[in-house]
Simulated scan of single mutants.
Amino acid sequence: MHWGKALMWSTLWGPACQMSRSNVSTMEQILKDPLKDGEPPESQEAMVQRYLEQL
């Protein structure tokens, strides 16, 4: 099978199929959503700043 070639030839990689990063949920939003713990998710900017300070 030539699944790799089919994927490369598809329009999946074209600009019309790509979405802005601002429309994609952050990892914390994806992980916290099922928990429903009432805490608002941390913003992407806050997460990056926390990583820079802690790592």
Rank of each mutant, 00 (worst) to 15 (best):
D33G: 00
E42C: 03
G38I: 12
K5E: 12
P40I: 02
L55W: 05
S10V: 11
S20W: 01
Q29K: 12
E28P: 05
Q54K: 14
P40N: 03
A46S: 13
A16T: 07
A16K: 10
N23W: 00
W9K: 13
C17T: 10
D37C: 12
M19H: 02
P15R: 09
S43P: 00
E42K: 12
L52I: 09
I30Q: 04
M47A: 14
L31Q: 05
P34N: 02
S20C: 13
S25G: 01
A16D: 05
M47E: 11
L55Q: 08
D33R: 05
W9H: 10
L35V: 15
D33N: 03
S25I: 00
A16I: 09
R21H: 15
S25E: 01
G38F: 11
Q54S: 13
Y51C: 13
L55F: 09
A46W: 02
S25T: 01
W3T: 15
R50L: 10
H2K: 08
D33Q: 06
D33P: 00
S25N: 01
A46N: 11
L52P: 00
R21N: 15
R50V: 06
A46L: 10
E28R: 03
A16F: 06
W13Q: 06
Q54P: 03
G38Q: 09
S10G: 14
S43W: 03
W9G: 13
T11H: 09
L55P: 02
K5M: 11
R21L: 14
Q49F: 07
E45W: 06
A46M: 10
E45P: 01
M47V: 04
R50A: 15
P15L: 08
M1S: 13
L7W: 14
W9F: 12
T26I: 05
I30W: 11
S10D: 11
M19T: 01
S43Y: 02
L7T: 12
M47P: 01
T11F: 07
M1E: 11
M8P: 00
K5W: 11
T26H: 04
M47G: 02
K5R: 14
S22A: 04
Q49C: 05
L31A: 05
A46V: 06
Q29N: 08
R21W: 15
L7M: 15
E42I: 12
Y51G: 05
T26A: 02
Q49W: 05
M1C: 08
E45T: 06
W9M: 13
D33I: 01
L52S: 07
K36Y: 06
K32C: 11
D37P: 10
T26W: 00
Q29S: 13
K5C: 09
L12E: 10
R21F: 15
V48I: 15
T26N: 03
G4Y: 04
E53D: 13
M47R: 13
S43V: 02
L7H: 11
A46G: 07
G4K: 04
K32P: 01
P40F: 03
W13G: 04
A6C: 10
L7S: 13
D37E: 12
P15W: 05
L52D: 09
T26S: 15
Q44Y: 04
E42V: 10
N23D: 00
P40A: 05
P40D: 07
Q54E: 14
D37W: 08
T11W: 07
M47N: 09
L35F: 07
C17I: 03
T26K: 01
A6R: 14
P34Y: 00
L31H: 02
M1F: 07
A6G: 11
Y51K: 11
I30K: 09
G4P: 00
E39M: 14
E53N: 12
